[in-house]
C-alpha cells in the first residue's frame, strides 16, 4: 500500500511539473511533447485508480492521436517562437530540433513500457474479478462495454453524430479548394 502512495506522488509530481512547463514553453513543439508526458503521468494515475482500460485509451487515443494532430498542425504552420525571434534563438533552432527528437524517442519508449504495465494489470483484474465475483473494486473491459452499450447507448450514438459534425466542420473550415471554387455559387 505504501508503494501505491509513492507511485501517486511520483506521477503527480511529473504531471504538475510537465504541465507547468507546457505553459512556460515559448516553443509549441516542446509544449506538445511535454503535454504528452503529462498525459502519460495521468495514465499512470488511472492505472493506480484501477482503470487500466482508460489508461490505455488515454495513451493510444489522446497521446497517440490527438496530440499527433496538434504536432502536425504546429509543424504545418511552422511558427517556432511566440512573438520575438532573436538571432541567437534562430541559430539554436537546429540544435533544439535534435534535442526534441531525442526527447521524442525517450517518450515513445516510456509510452510502450507504460502500455505493457497497464495491460498486465488489466489482465490480472479480469481473472481476479471473474474468480472472486464479490466486492470487486475494478472494472473489466467487458463490464465497461456492457454499461456503455446499455445505459449510455443514446449518448454513444449522439457522440458518433458529434464526430461526424466535427469532421464535416473541420473539412469545410480548413479546406482551401472548397473556399476558392465555391461550387454552390454557380
Amino acid at each position: 500500500m505504501e508503494s501505491s502512495l509513492a507511485f501517486f506522488y511520483v506521477f503527480a509530481a511529473v504531471a504538475v511539473v510537465s504541465t507547468l512547463l507546457v505553459i512556460a514553453q515559448p516553443n509549441p513543439i516542446y509544449s506538445v511533447l511535454l503535454l504528452i508526458t503529462s498525459f502519460m503521468a495521468l495514465a499512470g494515475l488511472y492505472v493506480l485508480l484501477d482503470a487500466p482500460f482508460v489508461a490505455v485509451t488515454q495513451i493510444i487515443v489522446y497521446a497517440g492521436a490527438i496530440m499527433v494532430l496538434f504536432l502536425f498542425v504546429v509543424m504545418l504552420l511552422n511558427v517556432a517562437q511566440e512573438e520575438t525571434v532573436s538571432e541567437a534563438e534562430a541559430a539554436s533552432a537546429g540544435a533544439s530540433s535534435g534535442a526534441a527528437r531525442g526527447f521524442g524517442a525517450l517518450l515513445a519508449i516510456a509510452m510502450a513500457l507504460e502500455l505493457i504495465w497497464a495491460l498486465n494489470r488489466s489482465r490480472g483484474i479480469g481473472t481476479a474479478a471473474s474468480v472472486a465475483g464479490v466486492t470487486r473494486q475494478s472494472w473489466s473491459v467487458a463490464d465497461i462495454g456492457r454499461t456503455l452499450f446499455t445505459n449510455y447507448a443514446f449518448a454513444f450514438e449522439a457522440t458518433s453524430v458529434l464526430i461526424l459534425v466535427a469532421m464535416i466542420g473541420s473539412i469545410t473550415l480548413a479546406g482551401r479548394h472548397l473556399a476558392e471554387k465555391k461550387p454552390w455559387r454557380r
Binding site: 482503470a51 487515443v61 494532430l69 504545418l76 463490464d143 454499461t147 457522440t159 466535427a166 466542420g169
Partner: peptide
Amino acid sequence: ADGQIIVFFVITVAAAEAAVGLALVIS
C-alpha cells in the same frame, strides 16, 4: 464504472474540439 464511461465521452468531445479548433487556427 460511470466515471470511466464519462471519461470516454470527454475524450471523444476533446478529439472533436481539437479537430475543429485546429482547422480554425489553420484558416
